[in-house]
């Protein structure tokens, strides 16, 4: 599904990722942990194709497509979806407007408004968010937890194949974490989606039943294991990697 080989990435002449490798197959859930400043968010932003992230060398192949040749829109339409640690507010643009345009541009067809609105209401009910979210500005005036749930509304409507979760748990209380995690697990199961989880919290990896855990240091994977690696980090921290 997603294979990254020997990837080196610069931002403003600073090398952040250095010979980074990962291979995520369809339906697999991978977690990346690492101290602050090791390049975790750079991985997310490079995969989705933000222009500020300059790929110096290496490759990213997704579903046999060379992602580095695609812009952000094309990558999203190929099935890549990021939930950021603090999803952005877009004032005056409603969720419904954005989703209707995203779906209609991707499919090349006019959206059936009755079906579309019905689906939006079903997803709101499933996520236990008020239906008025549908016509609210994207993340406008929303708390951190509401923003994450709002991003889940987008996720279920856009139906991507590959989800990147960048510090999903930041800004979420315990009840909200439970709702968000359950929703992502349901989604992953229903669509056999692949998931890449970036986090500081080993507990989140356990909640999401992550199968592969990677430790990142100085922009490079230095160790890969299963959930026991996350448990080891929970007990010992990063001392063993200094």
């Amino acid at each position: 599904m997603l294979k990254i080989e020997n990837l080196s990435v610069k931002i403003n002449d600073n090398t952040i990722l250095n010979d980074f490798n990962i291979d995520i197959k369809q339906g697999e859930i991978h977690g990346i942990m690492g101290q602050n400043g090791t390049g975790k968010s750079t991985i997310c932003n490079t995969i989705i194709g933000k222009p500020a992230y300059e790929v110096v060398s290496g490759s990213i192949v997704f579903d046999s497509k060379d992602l580095l040749k695609l812009d952000i829109t094309e990558r999203a339409r190929a099935g890549i979806y990021l939930i950021n640690q603090m999803p952005l507010e877009v004032p005056g643009v409603t969720n419904a407007e954005m989703l209707r345009i995203a779906i209609s541009e991707r499919t090349g067809e006019v959206v059936n408004l009755f079906e579309f609105n019905k689906r939006l209401e079903e997803v709101c009910d499933m996520l236990k968010i008020p239906r008025d979210f549908i016509h609210r500005g994207i993340n406008e005036g929303m708390s951190g937890g509401e923003r994450k749930k709002n991003e889940l509304l987008h996720l279920w409507m856009l139906e991507p194949k590959f989800i990147i979760l960048d510090e999903l748990d930041s800004g979420l209380d315990l009840d909200s974490i439970k709702i968000v995690v359950e929703s992502i697990k349901d989604y992953q199961k229903k669509y056999n989606a692949s998931v890449l989880v970036i986090t500081h919290d080993p507990k989140l990896l356990k909640l999401l039943n992550v199968k592969f855990v990677h430790i990142l240091k100085q922009g490079k994977v230095i160790e890969t294991g299963d959930l026991s690696l996350a448990s080891k980090l929970e007990k010992e921290g990063y001392k063993g990697y200094e």
Binding site: K50, A76, L88, I101, R106
Partner: peptide, 17 residues
């Protein structure tokens, strides 16, 4: 970038913003 990451073209994203 945010709107484009939802699969919206640059032109439509600018119009929406």
């Amino acid at each position: 970038n945010y709107l484009m990451s939802k699969g919206i073209s640059k032109k439509e994203a600018e119009y929406l913003i």
